[in-house]
Computed example of a mutant assay.
Amino acid sequence: MCVSTSNELTDGIDDNSFGPVVLASIGSVMLALYFYYVQGDKQRGQFVGFWPVTILALASYFRLEEIKELLADDE
């Protein structure tokens, strides 16, 4: 079994990969608030309000897959 430091494991991971994901999530929250309060379309606002959770969950999944591949390559 090979023991690696955290720096060795994170060298292949881009630290800014969540940038666009976070912006998309914030944008969808703003869009949901716009639909809910400004346009008065509460159903659409609630529907769009679920998007940030889905976007962040998918980004987390892909990030974990990337880490899993790096760990598998390390062995």
Rank of each mutant, 00 (worst) to 15 (best):
K68W: 14
T54P: 02
S28D: 06
I26K: 01
F62W: 14
Q39M: 15
F50E: 10
Y34F: 12
F18L: 12
I55H: 02
T54E: 08
T5C: 06
Y36D: 02
D15N: 11
S6N: 13
T10G: 03
D41K: 03
I13Y: 06
L64T: 10
N16F: 11
R44C: 08
T10A: 08
L23E: 06
A72S: 11
V38E: 09
S25F: 03
F18S: 03
N7P: 04
K68I: 11
L64P: 02
L56T: 03
G49S: 08
A57H: 04
V38K: 07
E66L: 13
S4R: 12
D14W: 05
N7H: 15
Q39L: 15
V21A: 06
D15M: 12
P52F: 02
S28I: 03
G40S: 06
T54L: 14
G27Y: 03
R63S: 07
Y37F: 15
D15L: 13
L58F: 12
I26P: 01
E75S: 14
E66P: 00
T10R: 13
L58Q: 08
A24H: 03
V21N: 02
F50H: 15
T5Q: 06
E69H: 09
T54R: 07
T5K: 04
F47L: 15
S4Y: 15
A72K: 12
I13M: 10
F35K: 02
E65F: 14
L9T: 04
W51L: 15
L33F: 09
L64C: 08
Q39D: 09
D11V: 08
E69G: 10
D74L: 14
P20M: 05
F35Y: 11
N7G: 11
K42Y: 07
F62K: 10
S25Q: 03
V38P: 02
S17C: 15
V3Y: 08
S4W: 11
M1C: 10
Q46L: 13
M30E: 09
A59I: 03
Q39F: 08
F50S: 13
A24R: 00
